[in-house]
Design a binder for these strands. Structure first.
Length: 266
DNA sequence: CCATTCCGGAATGTACCTTT
DNA sequence: AAAGGTACATTCCGGAATGG
């Protein structure tokens, strides 16, 4: 049986990616990295779980599990994130129509593309392009300066992020391990110290932090070409529990791209 | 004309269980 | 412990309808 894996994003793992591969899992990592490379090089083609699994000498069932352990995303959702990320770049940097971009990144159905894009990014393709054109040239730092004052007292959730003192830091709370759609709560800041998020209703949330150089413009932060971005991920329980403490690191090839338009949604 | 939304059929993801 | 397999609920694809 041949299985298509081009579906949408939205996994259910605690972290964006495992911190380090276990020593026994080195071959897993190699197989997954090879599969990710294949996905990146063949975005516009139909891709099948069984082909990636066979290339790594795994059964489709086991490959699916291994892939998720390494990347924290399922193969299909990882591929969808890659495709939407490329679509974002084309929407910003090319004059192509949405219809043509959908085909170019591997969607045979425009409706599927539009639906996926809106759910993952938080804006429809046309809205995304319009906002990128309108705000793209503005520096990200301006967003940080415009951000509302941090709440205080019992209505806040503090998040500590190491290594972000000299950058523009976005932090969001999400229901799922991969960020999609509007965050439950989010904040942007450009000064050292903890980030204070508006407290959501009680529950367990996943935290994503993305940091950019202070001189980056909004469009550059959205088109997946800026190589200075760093990420961190974790989880937090509301109420109580320990404060969320994250450490920024460089993105790895096996990290799913962050396609959520946080700078435009904030 | 281009983009978005709706909806039914089909593929996928997940939670187990079994085998090696 | 790692790998393979199954069942079934969930999610997605893509054509049709609708909107701007």
């Amino acid at each position: 049986m041949t299985r298509r894996i081009d579906d949408a994003i939205g996994m259910g793992r605690t972290e964006l990616a495992q911190t380090e591969p276990a020593s026994a899992a080195t071959s897993w990592h190699t197989a997954v990295e090879r599969a990710v490379q294949q996905m990146r090089e063949n975005l516009s083609d139909p891709q099948y779980l069984t082909d990636h699994a066979r290339a790594g000498l795994f059964s489709p069932f086991h490959f699916h599990r291994v892939f998720r352990n390494v990347t924290a995303a399922t193969p299909g959702r990882f591929l969808a994130a890659l495709r939407i990320a490329e679509a974002q770049r084309l929407l910003i940097r090319s004059p192509l129509r949405v219809t043509d971009i959908a085909a170019r990144v591997g969607y045979s159905s425009l409706s599927t593309f539009t639906t996926q894009f809106a759910r993952l990014v938080g804006l429809s393709p046309r809205q995304f392009r319009a906002m990128a054109i309108e705000f793209g040239d503005r520096p990200l730092a301006a967003l940080a300066a415009r951000a509302p004052a941090a709440p205080s007292g019992h209505d806040e959730v503090p998040v500590l992020v190491d290594g972000a003192d000299d950058g523009i830091l976005f932090v969001g709370l999400f229901h799922h391990g991969i960020p999609q759609g509007a965050p439950v709560s989010c904040a942007v800041r450009s000064t050292p110290g903890p980030v204070r998020l508006r407290r959501p209703r009680d529950g367990e949330y996943h935290v994503l932090a993305v940091c950019f150089d202070p001189d980056v413009r909004i469009a550059e932060s959205l088109d997946h070409r800026h190589d200075c971005r760093v990420v961190a991920a974790g989880s937090i329980t509301v109420p109580g529990g320990r404060p969320c403490h994250l450490r920024l690191r460089r993105p790895r090839p096996t990290d799913p791209p962050v396609v959520l338009a946080l700078p435009l949604l904030g």
